[in-house]
Design a protein around this nucleic acid. Structure first.
Lengths: 196, 196
DNA sequence: AATAATAATGAATCAATATTCAATAATATG
DNA sequence: CATATTATTGAATATTGATTCATTATTATT
C-alpha cells in the first residue's frame, strides 16, 4: 500500500493561512491553496471536508492554544490582577508573533464565524474570555480596579483594542512593531490616556 | 418619457445595509437586495455598477458623515482634550444609533475594504483619525495626557475598542445598551481599569 | 516480483449567482 | 391622442470556482 508522505494536512493549513490572509476567505481559491501547499487541488479534500472546514480548523487550533496557554501561565505563576492582565495580553500577542498572516486571518474572519453554530472553537474562545472576566472581578474585589466598570463590556473593549493593534502590526510590521503594541496595550488598558 | 418613481437608489442602499448585515457581503445576493428594496434585480444595475460599488457607497456616506460631524462639533464648541475625545466617541456612536445593521456592516466589512485602492471613503476615514491624533497631541502638550503614549498606536487601540463594543451592541442591543457602551468607552479610554 | 491497498492527481462536472439585455411600462411633450 | 424618451423588468447568459471521481502512483506485504 501507499504511505503518506510528509504532513500534507499541515502544509494545507499553513498555505490556507497565507492565502486567507492575502485575499480573504471568500476570495481564496482552493486551487490556489493547493498550489501554495504543493499538492493537487483534489488532495485538499482528502484532508478537509470543504473550504469552511479549513478555516474552522485554523480557529480551533488558534483558540485551543490561547486558552491552554493562559490557563497554564496563570496557574503556575502567582500574580496580582494587573500582572494577570499583562500576562493575558502577552499570550494573545505571542500567539501571532511567528505569523502575521495568522493575525490577519483572526482579525478579518472571526466576526463572520461567530454566527456559525457549528464553530467549535467558540468554546475555547469563551473560556479565554471567562478567565479575563475572573481577573477583572478579582481586581475589583481587591479594590485595585475601578468598581464602576462593567466587566463584560470592559473585556470586549480590551480585546477590540488589542485586536486592532494586531491588525496594524500584521499589515505594517515595521511601522507598528510588536513590542510597541504590546507595551501600549498594557499601558492603556491599565491607566488610560489621562496622566495620573 | 418616463419619470423616476421614488428614490430607488436610497431604497437599494438601505436594503443592502440590511442584507449585508444579515449574511455578510459575500453571501449577499443581488436578487435578495432587490427584493428587499422592492425593485427588480436588473434595476440595481441602473444605480450601481456592481455589488462592490454598493458597499463602497455605504462606506462613503458613512465616513463623510462621521468626518463632517466631528469637524463641526469640535469647531463650534470650546472643549479641552478629554472632552474632545468624549465628543469623538459620541459622534461615532451616534452614527449608528438608528441602525444596528449599519454598525454590523461597518464592523464586518471595513477591514477588507482597507486594501482596496479605489475605496474613496478612506480619505474621510483618515481625516477623522487625524482629528483624533491632533486631540491626543494637544492633550500631551498640555500635560493632560500621558507623554509616554504613542499617538498613532493609541488611536488604533481606542477605535478597536469602541468598534468591538458597537459590534456587541448591534448583535444584542438589550444586553449591551448603547448608553452603557458609550459611557464605558469614555471611561476606559480616559482612565483605564486601575482605580485612581 | 506480483499483489493489494491506500494516497494523490487534476481535468471534468456542476451549482450558484453576478450581470446583461431584449422586451415592456410609464409619462412628458407636442 | 400619438410619439418619443427614459425607467423598469426579470429571464437568459456567462463566469467562476468548489467539489467530485476515474485514473494513476506509491509502497507494504507476501
Amino acid at each position: 500500500m501507499r504511505v503518506r508522505e510528509g504532513d500534507k494536512e499541515k502544509d494545507i493549513l499553513d498555505a490556507a493561512i497565507k492565502v486567507f490572509a492575502h485575499v480573504g476567505f471568500h476570495n481564496a481559491k482552493i486551487s490556489r491553496i493547493a498550489e501554495v501547499a504543493g499538492v493537487a487541488t483534489g488532495s485538499v479534500y482528502l484532508y478537509f471536508r470543504n473550504k469552511r472546514e479549513i478555516l474552522l480548523k485554523i480557529f480551533d487550533k488558534l483558540w485551543l492554544n490561547v486558552y491552554e496557554g493562559s490557563e497554564n501561565a496563570l496557574q503556575k505563576k502567582n500574580l496580582n490582577p494587573p500582572e494577570k492582565i499583562d500576562e493575558m495580553i502577552d499570550i494573545l500577542i505571542d500567539t501571532f508573533i511567528e505569523s502575521p498572516s495568522l493575525a490577519l486571518v483572526f482579525v478579518n474572519e472571526q466576526y463572520h464565524l461567530m454566527d456559525d453554530e457549528s464553530a467549535s472553537f467558540k468554546v475555547y474562545y469563551n473560556k479565554f474570555f471567562e478567565i479575563g472576566e475572573e481577573i477583572i472581578k478579582e481586581g475589583i474585589k481587591k479594590n485595585i480596579f475601578s468598581k464602576s466598570l462593567d466587566v463584560e463590556i470592559l473585556r470586549y473593549y480590551i480585546i477590540g483594542g488589542v485586536r486592532n493593534l494586531l491588525h496594524q502590526w500584521a499589515r505594517e510590521p515595521e511601522k507598528y512593531p510588536l513590542n510597541k503594541i504590546r507595551q501600549a496595550s498594557k499601558y492603556i488598558t491599565k491607566y488610560g490616556i489621562i496622566e495620573k
